[in-house]
Design a protein around this nucleic acid. Structure first.
Lengths: 325, 325
DNA sequence: ATGAAAGCGCTAACAG
DNA sequence: CTGTTAGCGCTTTCAT
């Protein structure tokens, strides 16, 4: 900047004014400065400017589990769009579901003085962020609630969605309904399981724990569990899958066998219409989830100091056919 | 840091040493400093440290078209993984295929003094980056070559892949092969078209421009084009689709009609096995593309000053059946 | 409307 | 092993 000022024959401060589009600079000087900027290939150092001015880095951080996963990619896309409207850059980091890594990444983002944080929690204890929150760094949690810190949270109606999905199977006459889920350690899975039980309770059907299978991490595992369940003496007549990876494996195995068991899955599919199986699902708007969270965050960044709130977004039962019992 | 130093009764510099894990500090002092850090909730300002030390911000920028797109999400995932291994944060920005926006974003990233840039080009002229390159900011282009600037580039063998795909259709006896593509303005599409023509040329079949359809932006448009082509007096017996959005629309329309036309598509699908149609595709390793680019970038960041190179990654014909003519 | 001086929070260079 | 001093590139404050 000193070089530019020298070349343009003005003071350093005038260069700063021109570079920042401050009004009240003589057009002639503006031109001279701009010429010098071009000639020297000057590029403003954003770090230095936000170091001195102190308030904003025009950057927010997004912490997710894994960017290659379509769910998180959708979140990142919606967050990026909102960030863009606020002329803000987005730092994206993946926790890989590792709480230690989550903590390290969040600390690092804070050290970079992001203006705010959008977090899909991996761990259950976020009290280490309390100091940061008190220091005034806004943060919004999404998809899962934080632990040990009071902050804005945007969630899906997991319980209501699962209740509706299993309810639909009950309505179709099913009583032996297998429930397939990933780790019970994850908040969303616990909520969905509660919802499933809400729907099952009024039927008076005995709650058969052998029909609830936990720890299914991928489609292949889901296929194996389905095979095992169908080979039992008293097989289930319907399946409730708690995420789309599992649903995929269930579809594969049901098709392989030409089974007429019913299936309802949590999470919608891009290609559901082309599936060789009527796929009724519980859908929700992932982008809306992220958009809501990001907009809440920017409201905070712009100075909103109201009490933290929790927003719950609805889910929708997308009916594509449910074979009766 | 001054406060921490005062509280711990040491100099500012000692605090700096402790915070940076510099060896050769008395354990006792380390402890006192750490206690003060904890008590005051001190968090090192990463911006200030990289402003002064000047060399590295431990940040790289990734410019893509749109993060929610699975192709770019895969790229982002692989890049994030390499960045992570180098303890580097990733700023991701989406150009939305707008060259003006691309330029603005890249300039902004440079202003933030990223250590390097990973770019999937949207525009055709990147000469505005030349000053930046000369100033020593490493950058690697991927999926498409840059224009007007010499830099490392990692590409797929688009031409070879298309040649193999269309070649497979020719081998199955097809001569009237419809070719469906997105915008001809995109490098990858032009390359793939060249490859298709490579395969068609030796057959001596007249090159029928009515069978080459450009400007297909989404599955619905692809379905419409397929319908139109099949309703012609002399319909094609095979389709070559140049990306997976198009392939999807082709599959839908072929299924709807129960057509036995052959189909080969560029880009693989997650759910190809479950498709109601034998889907032979040209596959490639998207993550490998990004990994290669990111590793090249870090080699540059670490000081490699060798002449820029271009790497071309192979594609693979994944055979899932091709109906003969 | 323009400029001079101070300083953001940190690290480099050099002493002690 | 520890401290002092200067200064990264910019913006703020206050003068002119």
């Amino acid at each position: 900047m000193v070089d530019v000022a020298t070349l343009a024959g003005v003071s350093l401060k005038t260069v700063s004014r021109v570079v920042n589009n401050t009004p009240n600079v003589q057009p002639e000087l503006v031109e001279r400065v701009l010429a010098a900027v071009a000639e020297l290939g000057f590029r403003r150092n954003h770090l230095a400017s936000s170091l001195r001015s102190g308030q904003t880095t025009a950057t927010i951080g997004l912490l997710i589990e894994e960017i290659a996963n379509p769910f998180y990619a959708a979140i990142a896309g919606a967050a990026a769009e909102v960030a863009r409207r606020h002329d803000t850059m987005l730092i994206i980091a993946s926790s890989e579901e590792d709480p230690a890594r989550e903590q390290q990444l969040l600390r690092d983002m804070c050290a970079r003085r992001v203006d705010g944080l959008l977090v899909v929690p991996a761990g259950h204890d976020h009290s280490f962020l309390r100091a940061e929150v008190e220091l005034g760094t806004p943060m919004v949690f999404l998809d899962r609630p934080p632990g040990g810190v009071l902050a804005d949270t945007v969630l899906l109606d997991n319980r209501g969605g699962a209740r509706a999905g299993v309810g639909r199977l009950v309505e179709a006459g099913h009583r032996r309904i297998a429930i397939l889920l990933d780790s019970i350690g994850v908040y969303t899975m616990r909520e969905r399981l509660d919802g499933a039980q809400d729907a099952l309770a009024p039927t008076g059907a005995p709650y058969d724990t052998r029909l609830v299978r936990e720890g299914i991490r991928d489609p292949a595992a889901a296929s194996r569990v389905v095979a095992e369940l169908l080979d039992q003496p008293d097989p289930p007549t319907a399946f409730f899958s708690m995420n789309n990876r599992i649903t995929l494996g269930v579809v594969e195995e049901l098709c392989r066998r030409g089974s007429d068991a019913a299936l309802v899955g949590f999470d919608d599919f891009d290609l559901a219409r082309l599936m060789p199986y009527p796929l009724t699902v519980i859908a929700y708007d992932t982008r809306e989830l992220a958009r809501t969270a990001a907009e809440l965050l920017f409201r905070r960044i712009e100075g909103d100091r109201s009490w933290p709130r929790t927003v719950v977004l609805p889910t929708e039962l997308v009916e594509r056919g449910v074979p009766p019992r």
